[in-house]
Write a protein that binds this DNA or RNA. Structure first.
Lengths: 127, 127
DNA sequence: GTCTTTCGTCAGTTGACGCTAACGTTCGTC
DNA sequence: GACGAACGTTAGCGTCAACTGACGAAAGAC
């Protein structure tokens, strides 16, 4: 908490959750897994069969996704059924919405300011 | 394009753009930079001063963000002014929206199916 | 109790990424 | 033309993350 944290978010807790979710989604294979279990609930083995990597790799991906709050796990005997967890995306939605609104507002403001310069009008409206 | 691409998106081009944007946003410092230039247009040097890493590191982050389409660059003499580019987030918005809708729909469907099992009623409504 | 199935976890290796330091480039000034 | 300022780029290094193979744990079948 010094002069280092330049663009800090309003809620640090939400930022941490967003960080995990973002890091989890940054991997293409994890996004593929998420898309797979977004359509239907599937056991780990069946998810692993959909890719040409080992079960181990898929299992680790599932752990990352689950820790990020993006996956819902349900036990069924020896099997573990997974499905996407919509709530896990809420933080990202909020992050993107705020970023979108802020940058759009700034862009509009800059365009207006530049138009004021190029047209060389009186800038009584500004301020 | 074999049995490997399990959860392929509808538009492969959009997927590539989403991948770059997601990888760019996975880094906390890059998100901080993006938040910084979302509020106002800033030269590279001033952005670098906001963090306790070298100009080089910040410059590389700026490159990543720019290549991901998340940043707008404008020359002003020797200076280069940066601001967030809202359009770059559009692909992510679409990705999240679709994922959200699909997983929500699936979750509702599964709940309904399980309710049909537990209540053991006639399932004439299903289908 | 024993065996099989399903799945997670633990070392170990390899590739990717972020950081620093040094150098090159472009622009403005005198 | 020479100099300084503002940035980008490259090479090298350390670290983290993804992958594989081997092992362990939990649940059902016999």
């Amino acid at each position: 908490m010094s002069d280092d944290d330049a663009g800090s978010a309003a809620d640090p807790g939400a930022e941490l959750a967003t960080d995990e979710a973002l890091r989890a989604l940054a991997e293409p294979r994890r996004r593929a897994i998420l898309r797979l279990v977004a359509h239907e609930e599937l056991p780990a083995g069946q998810i692993a069969e959909a890719f040409d990597v080992t079960r181990t790799a898929v299992s680790q991906h599932l752990s990352v996704l689950r820790n990020a709050g993006l996956l819902h796990e349900r036990r069924d005997g020896t099997r573990r059924l997974y499905r996407a967890r919509p709530e896990g995306l809420a933080g990202l939605q909020a992050f993107l919405d705020q970023m979108w609104a802020t940058s759009l507002h700034t862009a509009a403001r800059l365009v207006e300011a530049e138009r004021g310069i190029t047209e060389h009008d009186d800038v009584t409206a500004a301020g």
